[in-house]
Design a binder for these strands. Structure first.
Length: 427
RNA sequence: GGAGAAAUACCCAAGUGGUCGAAGGGGCUCCCCUGCUAAGGGAGUAGGCGUCUAAACAGCGCGCGAGGGUUCAAAUCCCUCUUUCUCCGCCA
């Protein structure tokens, strides 16, 4: 959620920045400001009525004790009470419209981002190089199938299109990647967490997913009760909610978490041919990094997250690049995002394996995640940042394709060998 | 899944319709006393949000798990929900 004060005092700025992200929210913002004033006026007048009510209520027992006839007063107070109730209903209405508009507003993109969409994304660093192969490189689907790493057919049999089964060395390679990521993060000082994979609605609101993007997640409803859960689309959605409604002390910041989780996404709409295989599925594994920081340190935390993600890919010896996203390609809740894209030869291009974002105080305002400042006890919203570190479902194909050899075997990246009993080549 | 009990401030806890922003105790902070320690005496200890304000203070409003309702008036009565505990059943 955006800061109402900022919206009031910098209305034109806010509209312009959202426009850079591709949203024309001019009408919504005007209505929000109007609703805010209406609610304030209504609340002020209701408060003074309540003040009167409280005053009389305090006097009432004494009047009764003195035997004063209070019937006229009671009648007056009844009328006041009715007025207050009508006011309250009106305020509820105003608030509900206000909040639903506020929740629909995207986060402001940082000022240094290029406006516009994907086409304005800007690669800022490239790591490694494109290996020159003396043979025609194969597609990871073919390699994985031939080597028995991934069973696409049976995955589809079990759960339909967009699911696959890791088998044998494939499962072990996947597990090795996850362990490599987790061990590295732990060494970097992150707290390892394992989270519920089904969340309640409120989590999606704080994460910025709901109400606008509810279609993108799987919903679990039960035949015998009303409870509804949502399958975790990313561990970020759970992690950001860890401290929802909490008042942290500045000493506790930053809080750095990682979590491993499968991620479930509906990915409604169909695949492109280029996304054959594990590039886009309904379920994939990811280790997520997450930080709660003070506003002052979130930029440094962002750089740290990018570096941690880059180091993981670099450790695997892959050819990849870091891309600074244009305003319009950052997702709704994010102020800035850098993607890490690994080269996938079969695509003849790069594909996202990590997305590192600073959401500033946008989720914190939605979920009331606050901290008390040390010297002056002032309360402020935390900044939240997240980054994949990493999503395996795209690293796996990249490893298979970048490390493939002429005979269809795949060299195991050195950092993973200790997790695979020293195995050097999958053949 | 069934039956019951509970939720009050940092902790324990009193409070069944009105002067309750809420007794009491513990803890914590400060002060006094004692050479040190133990013990004792005194004072303080509801945060938060909203509103008002240029801002702050003060004021006003909200707050006793959450949300509704009854009432002139709700911690207190009613309804729904959540969580915790106990018992039964089922189960990795």
């Amino acid at each position: 959620m955006l800061d109402i004060r900022y919206l009031r005092e910098n209305t034109a700025d806010a509209k312009r920045r959202l426009l850079a992200k591709g949203c024309d929210a001019s009408a919504e913002i005007d209505r929000i400001l109007e609703l805010y004033d209406l609610r304030r006026a209504a609340a002020t007048s209701t408060d003074s009525k309540r003040s009167e009510q409280n005053k009389v209520s305090k006097e009432m027992p004494q009047l009764k004790k003195q035997g004063t006839d209070v019937s006229g007063l009671l009648e007056k107070m009844k009328a006041l009470s009715d007025e207050i109730k009508a006011d309250e209903a009106r305020i509820r209405e105003l608030e509900s419209e206000y909040y639903s508009l506020m929740l629909g507003l995207y986060n402001l993109p940082d000022e240094d981002l290029k406006p516009g969409g994907k086409e304005n994304n800007e690669p800022i660093r490239t790591f490694g190089y494109q290996k020159v192969l003396e043979f025609e490189p194969k597609h990871h689907v073919d390699l994985c199938t031939k080597l028995g790493l991934i069973d696409y057919e049976r995955g589809t049999k079990l759960a339909g299109n967009g699911f696959w089964v890791y088998r044998g060395l494939g499962a072990r390679l996947e597990w090795a990647l996850l362990n490599y990521f987790i061990d590295t993060h732990i060494a970097n000082g992150y707290e390892f967490t394992l989270l519920p994979l089904m969340l309640e609605y409120e989590c999606g609101v704080t994460a910025g997913q709901f109400p606008k993007f509810a279609d993108e997640v799987f919903q679990i409803a039960n035949p015998t009760d009303e409870r509804v859960h949502y399958m975790l689309p990313t561990a970020e959605a759970a992690l950001v909610n860890l401290h929802r409604g909490e008042l942290l002390s500045e000493r506790e910041l930053p809080r750095k978490y990682i979590s491993y989780s499968p991620c479930f996404r509906r990915e409604a709409g169909s695949y492109r041919a280029s996304e054959r295989g594990m590039v886009r599925g309904h379920q994939f594994n990811k280790v997520e990094m997450f930080q709660f920081t003070t506003p002052e340190s979130s930029d440094a935390a962002f750089d740290e997250l990018v570096t941690h993600a880059e180091n993981l890919v670099q450790g695997l010896g892959l050819h990849f690049r870091t891309v600074k996203l244009a305003a319009g390609d950052c997702s709704a809740a994010m102020a800035r995002t850098y993607d890490i894209e690994v080269r996938l030869p079969s695509l003849d291009g790069f594909i996202e394996v990590s997305s590192v974002s600073n959401s500033r105080d946008y989720p914190a305002r939605r979920g009331a995640i606050r901290f008390r400042r040390d010297p002056d006890n002032k309360i402020d919203l935390v900044h939240t940042l997240n980054g994949s570190g990493l999503a395996t479902s795209r690293i796996f194909p990249a490893i298979v394709e970048q490390y493939q050899q002429a005979d269809g075997s795949v060299v195991v990246p050195e950092v993973l060998r200790r997790y695979l009993g020293g195995l050097e080549v999958i053949s």
